[in-house]
């Protein structure tokens, strides 16, 4: 009797645990539309390493919308999104499962520039066209659509340095430590600082590309830091701005990342102080949609170079108002990508 009860409890516990353990990879992450092989049109799978922020959500929604339209138009036969939990190991096992399904196109937003090399080579060897986007993968068997992160870091730092008049104290708000994206941007900052000895990087905090995390980290650093003239931000511009406001500090030149909330804050800040000038740069989640069209066009015989540098969207005080208008508060400013534009910009 007692052992029966124990067994029942164990089963109940296992069910609950099983359900939650699967949660990151199936619901709400995995969505499948159409069935593979119901026509000659290609099947497409998106392997996304992480779904935990607004950028990734907007990216997945954008690809899904393009895929739905392409499905309706008969350009693809099926589309599926599989999200990982941010770990390369989980993404690798997911891609291994995808290879078994033999889709025609695999889009990858990679968790790591190196860890996925092997499994991507396997996918290519199995005849799948692999397009990696957002972050690079080092294997040259895949098509790479990724921004030049060092260049973006340099652009961020140069813009802030110019707007503070070439001298003063700056604070750095970094993204997720240890990622290629963050390391690249940081290298870009250092390159600019080397040429501007009058600019001091007086503090660095980790904001994890999250507004709330950045806000807490900046608030913490501000409690001991001297006056700050500018902030290099790799992610979390709005949180950074809020931290300065909450601390009652003068608002420095804060570099933006295209977030709707930041653009709105920036507009309000300019209304209060017309001399407030900064810039915002975002790689834009619509990069996923560009990758989608590259994948589909590859199956139709269009040729693309293996390495495609992705351009960023720059917002300045001059075009701020129209981008505030176009960007929802919880979204990110992005340029529209469609088939024609992808052909025009990237095709050989």
């Amino acid at each position: 009797m007692k052992s029966l009860k124990t067994l029942a409890l164990a089963v109940a516990a296992a069910t609950i645990l099983g359900a939650t353990a699967c949660a990151p990879s199936t619901s709400p992450g995995s969505t499948e539309s159409g069935a593979p092989g119901d026509s000659d049109a290609p099947s497409v799978v998106l392997s996304n390493s992480f779904i935990g922020n607004a950028w990734r959500k907007t990216m997945v929604e954008g690809v899904q919308a393009a895929a739905d339209q392409a499905l309706a138009d008969g350009r693809i036969s099926s589309f599926e999104v599989i999200n990982a939990n941010g770990e390369a190991s989980e993404q690798i096992s997911q891609i291994q499962a995808i290879i078994l399904k033999q889709p025609d196109v695999l889009l990858v937003d990679p968790a790591s520039p190196t860890a996925l090399n092997g499994v991507i080579d396997q996918a290519v060897a199995a005849g799948i066209r692999v397009v990696s986007f957002d972050g690079n993968v080092e294997t040259d068997s895949a098509y790479n659509l990724a921004p030049d992160w060092v260049g973006i870091g340099e652009k961020t730092a140069q813009s802030v340095v110019d707007n503070i008049g070439g001298k003063g104290n700056v604070l750095g708000v970094r993204g997720v430590a240890g990622t290629t994206i963050d390391d690249g941007q940081y290298q870009g900052w250092l390159n600019v600082l080397e040429k501007n000895p009058d600019v001091d990087l007086v503090g660095e905090v980790v904001g994890d590309w999250d507004q709330a995390t950045a806000q807490t980290a900046v608030s913490s650093a501000l409690s001991t830091l001297p006056d700050i003239d500018g902030v290099f931000v790799a992610g979390g511009s709005y949180g950074t701005a809020q931290a300065f406001e909450a601390a009652g500090r003068d608002i420095p030149v804060i570099y933006g990342g295209g977030e709707g909330v930041f653009l709105k804050w920036w507009q309000d800040q300019v209304a209060k102080d017309p001399s407030y000038v900064t810039e915002s740069d975002s790689s834009g989640p619509s990069i996923g949609t560009a990758a989608f069209w590259i994948g589909v066009l590859l199956t139709e015989g269009v040729e693309f170079p293996k390495a495609m540098p992705y351009r960023t969207l720059t917002i300045t005080n001059d075009n701020l108002d129209e981008w505030v208008e176009a960007t929802p508060l919880d979204g990110i400013a992005q340029e529209e990508w469609n088939e024609e534009k992808v052909r025009e910009v990237f095709a050989e």
């Binding site: 935990g52 922020n53 607004a54 994890d208 999250d210 507004q211 709330a212 995390t213 806000q215 949180g239 809020q242 909450a246 909330v261 508060l329 919880d330």
Partner: peptide, 11 residues
């Protein structure tokens, strides 16, 4: 404090 909801807020 954060004036809104962000995914990493509790982490």
């Amino acid at each position: 404090y954060s004036n809104g909801a962000f995914l990493g807020i509790g982490s």
